[in-house]
Amino acid sequence: MPPFATRPFAFLPAVLLASVLSAGGPAHAATPTESDRILLEQAARACQARDFRALFDAMAMSAVVRQRYSAPEIELTVVKPGGTVEMRKIDLAHYTDFPVAKVDEYYKPAKASTEGDDYVLLEFNQSQSDQISIEWTRVRFVGPSQGGDDLGTPVTLDGRPYDPMVRTDGQLLLEPTADCWTLIADSRLQGQ
Rank of each mutant, 00 (worst) to 15 (best):
P3Y: 13
T6I: 14
F9N: 11
L12F: 12
A14Q: 15
A18N: 01
V20K: 00
V20I: 13
L21H: 02
A23Y: 00
G24M: 07
P26V: 09
A27G: 12
T33N: 08
E34P: 04
R37Q: 15
A44I: 02
L55R: 05
A58V: 08
A58S: 15
M59W: 01
M61G: 07
Q67K: 11
R68K: 05
E73F: 08
E75T: 12
E75H: 11
L76D: 03
V79Y: 03
V79K: 07
P81N: 10
G83D: 02
T84A: 13
R88C: 02
R88A: 05
K89A: 11
I90T: 08
A93E: 11
H94Y: 14
Y95A: 12
Y107G: 08
P109E: 04
P109F: 01
P109H: 03
A110N: 14
A110F: 10
A112Q: 15
S113G: 15
T114Y: 12
T114Q: 12
G116S: 09
V120W: 07
L121W: 04
N125M: 07
N125G: 09
Q128G: 14
Q128Y: 06
Q128H: 10
Q128T: 11
S129E: 15
D130P: 05
Q131W: 08
I132A: 10
I132D: 06
I134S: 05
I134A: 01
P144D: 08
P144F: 04
G147C: 02
D149R: 11
L151Q: 03
L151H: 00
L151W: 01
P154D: 03
T156E: 03
Y162K: 01
R167F: 00
R167Y: 01
T168M: 14
G170H: 03
A178Y: 10
D179I: 09
C180I: 04
T182I: 06
T182D: 07
D186V: 08
S187L: 13
R188T: 14
Q190E: 15
G191Q: 13
